[in-house]
Computed example of a mutant assay.
Amino acid sequence: MSQTFRHPEILEIARREGKVTVEGLAAHFGVTLQTIRRDLTDLAEDGRLERVHGGAVLTSGTTNIGYEERRSLNPTAKQAIARACAARIPNGISLFLNIGTSTEAVAQELRHHENLMVVTNNMNVANMLVANPSCEILVTGGQLRRADGGLVGNLAAETIRQFKFDLAVIGCSALDQDGDLLDFDIQEVSVSKTILRQSRKTYLVADHTKFARSAPARIASIADVDAFFTDRRLSVDLTASCKDWRTEVVVADQEDPDRL
């Protein structure tokens, strides 16, 4: 069976079961694992599926995919992005890290920074930074989102308004081709907008798969951040826009994440 015939059936299985696995599809179609991996890569590049460890899931529209699945998306790229971002974060500053697996990757890279005061609405970030004895950690209040350890709502936003951060590192659920940062949770969007207002400088961390996704709520534009750390070059049009906006674009090197 050619890939032309496999692709629609793969999408139908994904719609029916929520996720497809490489091994399951290989057995179903009687083809090799490598053949299925190529199929899933093609479908992901077309924006019809999102690759996760061992398989793929449907691209998101109005609801986000699960936290564990998000953690398994593009881990090498996220680590490279996090290292590039952390290399730009000086010691001895006040820093905000928000909700997301990319910002959690940044937190992992800050374990040897000194004299940071980190405020976060991400319980996972707080737990990661406990390993750094030189880091002062403050956690906002708010409604706990059990799915990913995020704190959202008015109490989180009110806590953030008590600070003026030297730097904020934020993520997003999706990126529109015009450079808009998008998310699924209206409460989280409100908190993210507050973070932007209360920070002297803002870094965005997001890998290229965010451009293949969509979400209904707008946070801001790439124009509103000082630097965008990602893993692939942007489109010609968006690169030109970032230049006009004076937003620095840093493409992390996945072969040597310390070399930009």
Score class of each variant (00 low, 15 high):
Gly149Ala: 11
Lys210Phe: 10
Val118Pro: 02
Ile160Met: 00
Ile195Lys: 02
Leu33Phe: 01
Asp224Glu: 07
Asn91Lys: 06
Met123His: 14
Phe163Tyr: 15
Gly179Pro: 01
Arg71Ser: 10
Leu73Val: 15
Ile10Gln: 00
Glu188Pro: 12
His112Ala: 12
Val250Ala: 04
Gln34Lys: 14
Phe228Ile: 15
Gly61Ile: 13
Gly61Ser: 14
His208Cys: 05
Gly24Trp: 12
Glu114Arg: 15
Gln108Ser: 06
Arg83Tyr: 09
Ser235Gln: 04
Met117Tyr: 13
Ser102Cys: 12
Ile137Tyr: 02
Ile160Gly: 01
Ala174Met: 05
Arg246Lys: 15
Gly55Glu: 01
Pro90His: 10
Val57Trp: 00
Asp207Leu: 09
Cys135Gln: 04
Gly30Pro: 01
His208Asn: 06
Met1Trp: 03
Asn91Trp: 07
Phe29Tyr: 07
Leu49Tyr: 02
Arg71Asp: 02
His7Phe: 03
Ile99Trp: 15
Ala87Trp: 07
Asn127Ala: 15
Asn132Ile: 03
Arg200Ser: 05
Leu58Trp: 03
His7Ile: 00
Lys210Ile: 07
Ala131Pro: 00
Arg259Tyr: 08
Met128Ala: 04
Ala107Pro: 04
Arg88Ala: 14
Leu204Ser: 02
Ala14Arg: 00
His28Arg: 11
Leu196Lys: 05
Asn91Ile: 06
Gly153Trp: 04
Gly142His: 12
Ala27Met: 14
Ala157Asn: 01
Val20Ser: 03
Asp185Asn: 14
Leu138Cys: 05
Glu109Asn: 07
His113Cys: 11
Val139Met: 08
Asp148Tyr: 11
